[in-house]
Design a protein around this nucleic acid. Sequence first.
DNA 1: AATGAATGAGCTTTCATTCAT
DNA 2: AATGAATGAAAGCTCATTCAT
Lengths: 205, 205, 205, 205
Amino acid sequence: MADALSVPRAETGADLRRSILDHTRRLLVADGYDALSMRKIAASAGCSATSIYLHFDSKDALTHALISEGMDRLHRVLTGADDEHETPAGRLDALSRAYIRFGLDNPEYYEVMFQLRPERMARYPAEDYRRAHRNVDLFRDALADGVADGSLAAPGPPDVAASVLWTALHGLVSLSLARRIDVRVAGDELIDAAVRQSLAALGAA
Amino acid sequence: MADALSVPRAETGADLRRSILDHTRRLLVADGYDALSMRKIAASAGCSATSIYLHFDSKDALTHALISEGMDRLHRVLTGADDEHETPAGRLDALSRAYIRFGLDNPEYYEVMFQLRPERMARYPAEDYRRAHRNVDLFRDALADGVADGSLAAPGPPDVAASVLWTALHGLVSLSLARRIDVRVAGDELIDAAVRQSLAALGAA
Amino acid sequence: MADALSVPRAETGADLRRSILDHTRRLLVADGYDALSMRKIAASAGCSATSIYLHFDSKDALTHALISEGMDRLHRVLTGADDEHETPAGRLDALSRAYIRFGLDNPEYYEVMFQLRPERMARYPAEDYRRAHRNVDLFRDALADGVADGSLAAPGPPDVAASVLWTALHGLVSLSLARRIDVRVAGDELIDAAVRQSLAALGAA
Amino acid sequence: MADALSVPRAETGADLRRSILDHTRRLLVADGYDALSMRKIAASAGCSATSIYLHFDSKDALTHALISEGMDRLHRVLTGADDEHETPAGRLDALSRAYIRFGLDNPEYYEVMFQLRPERMARYPAEDYRRAHRNVDLFRDALADGVADGSLAAPGPPDVAASVLWTALHGLVSLSLARRIDVRVAGDELIDAAVRQSLAALGAA
DNA sequence: AATGAATGAGCTTTCATTCAT
DNA sequence: AATGAATGAAAGCTCATTCAT
């Protein structure tokens, strides 16, 4: 009875956990990680700051949950792109574009996933960060496959070439998100050029 | 004489300004920008927090002084590298290596120069950030020269190709500083590979 | 029972809100508004400065709560005085004396209510200040009633005459509170004289 | 030579003292006493904060200099008004209007002269405040003269009646300066009404 | 599961004032 | 006469977190 009359209550239980994560993402896009505070999250999610601690041990733990989630999403996106193509060169191209797209479309995930310094966060589970390498591994595997079948030519160990490719993609994404790239240059043309330049050395012509 | 005998006194006057900047850099390397506080700087520099305000209008102004200084240093390093080589390809290679070296050797400058989101800093002089483009221009000029004399082949406008090159270098530097690159891969080998891969597309063979 | 035996504990909860308001009043009497600080209030109320923010959004909000409270109290006092008399002249006399009495008895309320410059306070709700006029309205109504029944003779619009009367009463209260009136003159005699002189022009003989 | 080329230097010596006082007045009008700071005064007067201390022992001393100056100016204005009229009633009316005019025209002087609580200012010379009474004395003398020649009828000791008159005038001025009077009422009409009402009881018809 | 209350530590910044020059 | 340098104290306010309920 009271419920029927009450104002639409904020989520509770598992829903609240989900809601907290989503509102945190929203705040991250808007204000960035530094401006994130438990109070603001609580206010945004419509719960008390204390309630957040029912679902996350600490602010760091909340951040890590987001990182994990982001890593999973990125991995899913990348494997999807990987699967859609046959040739190693096609896979590398698709992986690169999917990575960039993910970063630009999910600035909040990208910020916590790749712009944070884990060693500056207390109590961080190194394990979580090691999972990030699964993503680089996708690049490496496609590259190794290409080298194996002669369609690609990595000028060195595939591990290294894949890492280099990743750093290049990351540089594009992070400077784009920070809006540090000349506006006359930024845009789809830049992304195309970046993918082409990044893959050129790998003989993906 | 008295000086020689006196205990190492905290600097004063213009020296203090210099000392504040240096201690700020030290703290930036150790703890990062977010953890930077006027109190900590003061404690580190051996002066009162109030004294910092004699030399800098605000925390932002102090940060901007560092950014300016870093931009100048980077520019000097890059022009030095540029001048030491004759061929456009040689210049591009030297510029790239100098950029990476500067970033890895000056993590504190690099952090405030390129890891901060200017739009999230109040009262920042857009002018300062525009100076950053002077550095990209060095890459573009070398590239354009190479295209002009036929020794290089940018697959598109030199502006775009230079920006792409910059993002690739930045990605390498920022992920290296964040220690996010697999330790089995990191090192001089990685840098070599990165430079080679980044320049491959520009026909700098 | 436990209560009776326990040491005088600092209040908590809603009691703390009340306690904060009361200690703020005490500090206002002692030191004035300018010397008021959140830390001092906290120390006086026996809570942390942070706790004050659980009950009031800001220092201004705390001040405004006091202003509101004071306005209510004054209004209650004035309507009480108004109701106790039949004739317009009697009402005006009672209103005037009640106003003066309230001011002299509640210097802390009076200070925030009438000695502050609202335009110098950020985020002040103009609404709160408009409520002050309800009090002047009581004077105006009594005066208008007297003019209507011929027992009083306002030399002009009742609005104006009532405002003038108010300013006269305020002048007496504020200079008395500031102890700026010659001690040989101050006292009940002065109040009597002030009321008599202030009402003389209104034909309240 | 250097002088001829140099930018217009700020005043020095006695001129600087004068300049400090004037800039302080300007700041008082703009921001009020609470917002007054030595640094702001120095910045406004174009000298160093330290220089202020060459001319005034402390912030309080500077304030007291202003109070003294204001008291002198008010006294001059009042005696001028007093002298221009023959009859006691005329003198009282002129004194009242001159007082109001002075207050409204010199909000900065009025604020430090009459809105400050001397007991809250450290090291204040009680003497300075006693001089304020000279002004009330002018009212009292005119009133006493009127009583003596039968043209006025103070309902009690002239001292008291004069003080009451002063408090009424002060109430009008202070509430006007604080912009606390209903705008539909404020204006010359209000001043006229206030003078008329204030003098009515003194038989100045 | 959820919360209101509470706090100590911390933040940037401004203050009046002093001192050596 | 004038100043730049320096400071301790204090301001309002926000932070992540804990605890009792």
